[in-house]
Design a protein around this nucleic acid. Structure first.
Lengths: 247, 247
DNA sequence: CGTCGCTTTGAGCCATATCAATACGCGTGG
DNA sequence: CCACGCGTATTGATATGGCTCAAAGCGACG
């Protein structure tokens, strides 16, 4: 069922420096001066794209690096004591993985590729050395950690007493916003995660997710065709997500 | 219904420097050298204790400072668009409030005193200046932010498909652990939040919280007398919290 | 063209919400 | 000191949203 780490057969050369990377305006190095950027560029390990299904991180491994998604999509998850998978997040290009491990010393989640994905590895010890001399660097890290806290808080909020439809609406809007901020702004999205993963993330069963999609579609809030979703009425979707109560 | 910011009548003098503070071993300045500590000590604003019910922070206010709880207990919450309060966290001595605002520029939550509470204010701009010269300082901040991410993730996990009893068990264990790490280690705890707040935080109604307490008590997992809770069997509580499924 | 996994749809059930009533606890004022 | 009153907590009876179980549809891929 699980494919192991292996690069995709015909991967584009992933070795572009940060400045020429499409994510430059929103990724960690965005506000850096030439000097800082050049030094950061040198410590970053740019990995070859990985195929869907590949497991990139395993929870419990010792913390060494922070990872930035460069392309594609990852999910982070954890297997709990009953053997159930718990999806804790989806990670889009420009987002970081592993921030939870800085204090703990080991990663709190595993990470798996949902859509062919390449990753920039930032060895943390060297990053800290660099940040001694470049205050921009640490400021950016702190800001991204703050963002992560906000995102996590949002996740908790959506799980807390929202009805199924509101959760789904909120989830889609959240994805939409994050894509928008990354320049992929369009009401049409190609979801890279399965209905199972969505349900797991939202605290719902697949069946309920499916039914919620159907209801939102019937109410004219979105068009759905498998993984292709088109948000028809952002206004009403936002209202629904904000309201959150049953019916 | 709400009392306004006002110091408690007979408050102990809160103006002790960090080194003599009881929280020193676990608070932000814990690993600092004399020099860093002295400078940090100077920028910290130590506020007088505030009475239960006082509102310390209002969500949306511009971000200036991070706050460390020195004594007592605070809750952070947010009023959603339907006028409902959403409790996002409880903050014990040595824990920080406001980390979510660093990137956003304004606080994402309000904060209210649950139990007479004093606060150390750390003006962030000056903190950043200081951290230019003291790497310990920024390392500690990053670690505490990482901890906050872990705590938020835990909150999301507990809301996700755990039955009421498991949520409550997990909540009590989490509090217990945090108190323990702060030297208040004892199986007996005096909860400073109401059943309403617990329910709100756990995504349950008051009634369900109350019933869950009753069931845990009947099964011999804890003793309850109002806000006084005694954890009788940490082992079984942990098992219950880990399992998480209905019945 | 068949297989396998993912998704959708349907029918019945269960955990928790909701509504309602009572009990407790604490501070206030007589 | 006790009586009162209000907010908090417990307990009971009923309603319901989402889960579970079951089956059929759909799509990708060999």
């Amino acid at each position: 069922m699980l494919s192991v780490n292996r690069p995709a057969p015909s991967a584009p050369n992933p070795c572009i420096d940060c400045r020429r990377c499409a994510l430059f305006p929103i990724c960690l190095p965005k506000n850096m001066d030439d000097q800082a950027l050049a030094e950061l560029d040198q410590i970053i390990v740019r990995h070859r794209p990985m195929a869907k299904g590949a497991e990139w991180l395993q929870h419990g491994q010792p913390f060494r690096s922070i990872f930035a998604v460069r392309s594609g999509c990852m999910k982070t998850y954890r297997i709990n004591s009953t053997g159930q998978e718990q999806v804790s997040g989806f990670h889009l290009p420009g987002e970081l993985i592993g921030l939870d491990a800085i204090d703990a010393g080991s990663y709190g989640t595993s990470a798996r590729v949902l859509k062919e994905c390449s990753v920039c590895e930032i060895p943390f010890a060297r990053f800290e050395q660099l940040s001694e001399h470049h205050s921009v660097l640490r400021r950016e890290l702190v800001k991204l950690m703050s963002q992560e806290i906000v995102q996590q808080r949002w996740h908790a909020a959506i799980l807390n007493k929202q009805c199924a439809e509101a959760r789904l609406a909120g989830f889609l809007l959240n994805l939409h916003d994050r894509l928008q901020r990354r320049g992929y702004g369009h009401e049409s999205m190609l979801l890279s995660m399965s209905r199972y993963d969505i349900g797991n993330y939202l605290g719902l069963t697949v069946e309920t997710v499916s039914r919620s999609f159907t209801r939102l579609r019937r109410e004219g809030l979105l068009q759905v065709q498998g993984k292709q979703v088109h948000l028809m009425d952002l206004e009403r979707l936002r209202a629904l997500a904000a309201e959150g109560l049953p019916h």
